[in-house]
Design a protein around this nucleic acid. Structure first.
Lengths: 205, 205
DNA sequence: GTCTATACCTCGATAGAC
DNA sequence: GTCTATCGAGGTATAGAC
């Protein structure tokens, strides 16, 4: 991943091979599987093979771990999404790139589905930390809104741009509850069904 | 509410004026506001003005409270939905009734938005209790699928029936994160936008 | 950077009086 | 049906040696 290495060198993302990076990876997995509240610092420490007290050399608190998981994931997702959009041609394909990318962040195998942590554990953050994370989220969301605006100007959008984004965000964020990566419906099929729902009544094939 | 009184008399739902009913109401509110894990039995007891030890005269465990909140909510929602569908005429209006009802369960003022507890706290249940609740959920979902099937047979449905239900479920369950009941967009507006997304390309006005 | 040891707290749940 | 009192478990976080 070219983007990942660039972000690591810019200091925006922790090197996954560092002790801190390994902790973040394992914490993200555990938060996704069991939820933040039910994951203990002992669990996280055990997953990387250290004692629980050693964690606090790398993070100031358990919430600090969740904050880091979320902010680094958002920074990474934003770059991946930006790249995917730039590689697509035309508003219809750029919007499809948004849908496909977010589905991959949410249920795909590569990113180990960390988007679901951002969604499910939002409430576990204090309001101060929420404000902190929202800065990154706004950048991500703007990429979506730009793509939707282009779609609208091309006459391909059926509903209101902002409402559409929110309805689609919900539809995508809910997929972990039912979608099976190895099922009959492929991720690409699902992306097409979703695109069709947004651009309804317009011929998008 | 005629349905509520009938369900109470059938013993399917706890009388809200009983001590147990008051506990369930307050627990549901707290679970919605703070989440199940962050709500303590002391919080719930305090909300109805008793001591925490007294709760265990009415419930065998904290999970038993969540189970009861969820199953009674589902039983109630199912009857409300069934009634709303039966009062609507034609597939388009019956589907709109489904959307409107579920939006009300999720963000409406009357039901105090308990649907969001069913969604957010699912993972906090043991798998045994999940199986228990799924029985009620299946009945609720079948009402949706029947309505969608009628819509499909009327040639009004754009995508696959099952995928559509899941995408729409996500869209609706996500609304608590952004929808403001006192905002410019009314719940009825939102229901119409959602219906339009499902029946895309078909003239549904 | 990790260890051991532990302080300190809060939680769910119980027991028995009233 | 509620109270008081409390138990035991398990949580986050700290301190200081190595």
């Amino acid at each position: 991943m070219g983007q990942l290495n660039a972000l690591i060198q810019q200091g925006q993302i922790t090197d996954p091979d560092s002790p801190r990076g390994r902790l973040l990876d394992q914490a993200a997995q555990l938060f996704r599987q069991k939820g933040y509240e039910r994951t203990t610092v002992r669990d996280i420490a055990g997953a990387v093979g250290i004692q629980s007290g050693s964690i606090f050399h790398h993070f100031s608190s358990k919430e600090d771990i969740l904050r880091s998981v979320m902010s680094e994931a958002l920074i990474y997702f934003t770059e991946i999404l930006r790249d995917a959009i730039s590689r697509a041609e035309g508003p219809r394909d750029k919007l499809l790139a948004c849908i496909r990318s977010e589905l991959q962040f949410t249920i795909g195998p590569d990113t180990t589905a960390i988007m679901s942590v951002l969604i499910s554990e939002w409430r576990s953050l204090s309001s101060e930390v929420q404000q902190d994370i929202l800065q990154y989220r706004d950048v991500y969301e703007q990429l979506w809104l730009d793509a939707l605006q282009d779609t609208e100007e091309a006459g391909l959008l059926a509903g209101d741009m902002f409402v559409t984004r929110r309805l689609i965000a919900g539809a995508i964020h809910w997929t972990p509850y039912w979608f099976q990566l190895d099922g009959e419906l492929s991720l690409e099929d699902l992306a097409m069904e979703t695109l069709q729902m947004i651009c309804c009544g317009k011929d998008i094939r």
